[in-house]
Nucleic acid binder design. Structure first.
Lengths: 230, 230
DNA sequence: CAGGGATGTAACCGATTTGTAACCCAGCGC
DNA sequence: GCGCTGGGTTACAAATCGGTTACATCCCTG
């Protein structure tokens, strides 16, 4: 399941160039304005943001500060691309939690490689698992294996919990059964893909009729934790 | 429906040789001048460009830069063929986003194989996970299985979605019924070609009267998602 | 080794999706 | 006008998909 990368870069030529390179390996969406990027970050659920610090409508670093203030931008890893290296800039960037920092001119393959690294570190070593998370009235705290739905305590069995956690961490995205099998059950699992259905059924029941609806079935594809329409 | 490959090669003997080999597997168009190639790339909507870097009227790499500047040239994958390997040339080529790089002399079957690889990677990667796409007010995000037409949410059934996605990805090009059957329904499908008509009908209905019009019937040929006037 | 919880599997059944056939209209050549 | 072809639309039936339950396992713990 390819990762989704969002590119924010004011210069359209550069934007196309970056996007083309990243598209060789990731699913890429791009835009040239900070406010578009906020919108797309919210709508598109990217896994990573590549941010040029010189964007027309807002300084890159201010943008980052704004992004960090939003709930969806909180956990989003960012790689910054700056026109030059300044002590202050680098410091500021790392302060705001960027994962990596590239200075122009750079080898595009290096960018792709760094994206790969950040994504792997973030999502494949399970490092992002563990932080408490709250979406649409459902809260989980993996550290304590606790879950609440609309304020009420819900007890989940281990597999139900792991399933819910993945669904919530990738909220809005459709996760296929094979993907869920691989991530929740582990690659060595021999379980049938129907096992996922059964577990989803149990999870829904445990969450109750209301919160259970958030776990949406996407016909012929898989499942998705979806917030209600706004 | 076979892939369409455009060959740009200055030397006419070489051009014929390349084209003949590629024609065993693809639909090939070829030309010997950069400006012809730009024209053909625009008109013919090829899926892949095989580019000899030594073209009479323009250095291959400059050509590539120009091509990347055009709207139809961004997404077009390119395989470069160079007379010799120079560090600088290779780097420059990859900078401009070529997918692959071959140095003469080479085995023509290798070229065909690489074309196949690039095309597969580019067009046949995961079925439902492509990047978001927005044309003429219709937006789809395969990763989230969402579709909007003129700002309004549209719910599509799996086949309808897959059909719309192909039509949009190849917007402006006429797709035949057999092609759609093969790509959307899958090779093993036994469905009748009329099934496509019915699905198109359902898709149009779902998109609504206005957006539905974008899916055009091309008599005796097939269907086409009309892109905005250029 | 018994008991209990967790979870995979199989079976059943209702819901959804989709192919087919039938009917209709429009365009066209005679 | 008539017959023919191509395509839109609809209704219906078949196939597929997915929810749920019951039951068999497996793995603990005691």
């Amino acid at each position: 399941m390819p990762y989704r990368v969002l590119v924010l870069e004011g210069d359209s030529e550069q934007r196309v160039w970056l996007s083309d390179w990243l598209a060789k390996e990731f699913v890429v969406d791009s835009c040239g304005l900070a406010r578009e990027a906020l919108e797309k970050a919210k709508q598109g659920k990217p896994d990573l943001l590549v941010l040029a610090v010189d964007v027309p409508d807002m300084p890159g670093m201010s943008f980052l500060a704004v992004l960090r203030d939003t709930d969806y931008g909180h956990g989003l890893p960012v790689i910054a691309v700056a026109p030059e290296r300044t002590e202050e800039g680098v410091l500021r960037a790392f302060d705001l939690g960027v994962e990596d920092y590239l200075v122009r001119p750079f080898d595009p393959r290096e960018l792709v490689a760094r994206c790969r690294t950040v994504l792997r570190r973030r999502y494949e070593r399970g490092e992002y698992l563990g932080a408490p998370l709250s979406i649409a009235g459902v809260e989980i705290d993996p550290g304590q294996r606790r879950c609440q739905a609309r304020g009420k305590r819900v007890t989940l069995r281990p597999r139900e919990f792991a399933l819910l956690e993945i669904l919530m961490r990738k909220a809005g995205r459709v996760l296929t059964r094979p993907y869920l099998l691989e991530t929740v059950w582990g690659m060595s699992s021999t379980a049938d893909t129907r096992a996922v259905d059964v577990m989803v059924s149990r999870l829904r029941k445990a969450l109750g009729p209301e919160a259970g609806k958030l776990v949406e079935t996407v016909s012929k594809l898989g499942y998705c934790f979806r917030e209600p329409e706004t």
